[in-house]
Design a protein around this nucleic acid. Structure first.
Length: 190
DNA sequence: TATAAGATTTACT
DNA sequence: GTAAATCTTATAT
């Protein structure tokens, strides 16, 4: 079942990040379907979070999409090389988002293997830059409605108990000072 | 207009 | 363990 808009528009971005574990992210690139189960996410709490692009209410062309209603994609280029995929949450004018950091491929495996030159499915999409590569996510998928048929997230009935979830501080954001230690990172233990 | 830095990955020492 | 790759955005002249 494809997640509907109400899933994303809730006003607790940390809760959405936790709930996205065990869900399936699917892309449809020119008719080619590929995707997998989400195993790692991070919450970015908009204006109050120094690690967020929208910290302090910063509003630019790049971050504009974060201020729209939840349920759309936010893709941007990092270090000039890697595309990172985020899901915008909450209501209009609240720039919260969840970064998808890792997943385990299940659909379109032949295409995923072709895009990555690797064989190990478990480690083929275990980083935010790697999963966008194997799912062929790029800037053309920025600002896309997740209720569309180009890219979406669906629930396949995978139950996730708290015992399977590991919460930890986010990584790679040392510049965010005290916010860098917030427990906003979620891992699904398999 | 110019410069600095980054929500990372990969290869090499 | 360290460094390079590589380009967009933000901030300052």
């Amino acid at each position: 079942m494809k997640l509907d808009r109400e899933f994303y528009t809730r006003n607790d971005v940390v809760e959405v990040a936790r709930d996205l574990l065990g869900k399936f992210l699917i892309t449809n690139i020119d008719g080619i379907l590929s995707g997998g189960m989400i195993t790692e996410t991070e919450a970015y709490a908009g204006v109050i979070d120094k690690a967020s692009h929208a910290y302090g209410g910063r509003r630019t062309n790049r971050t504009e999409i974060l201020y729209s209603e939840g349920g759309v994609s936010y893709v941007y280029l990092c270090y000039g090389i890697h595309h990172l995929f985020n899901v915008v949450t909450d209501i209009v004018d609240i720039p919260n988002a969840v970064l998808i950091r890792g997943l385990e491929p299940t659909d379109g495996l032949s295409y995923i293997l072709e895009r990555s030159n690797k064989q190990n499915i478990k480690a083929i999409a275990d980083g935010p830059g790697k999963l966008t590569k194997v799912l062929a996510i790029n800037m053309s998928l920025n600002k896309i409605n997740l209720c569309s048929d180009k890219i979406w997230i669906e629930d396949r009935g995978r139950l996730v108990s708290d015992a399977e979830i590991k919460v930890s501080p986010r990584i790679g954001i040392d510049y965010a000072e005290e916010d860098a230690s917030l427990p906003y990172r979620f891992n699904l233990m398999t």
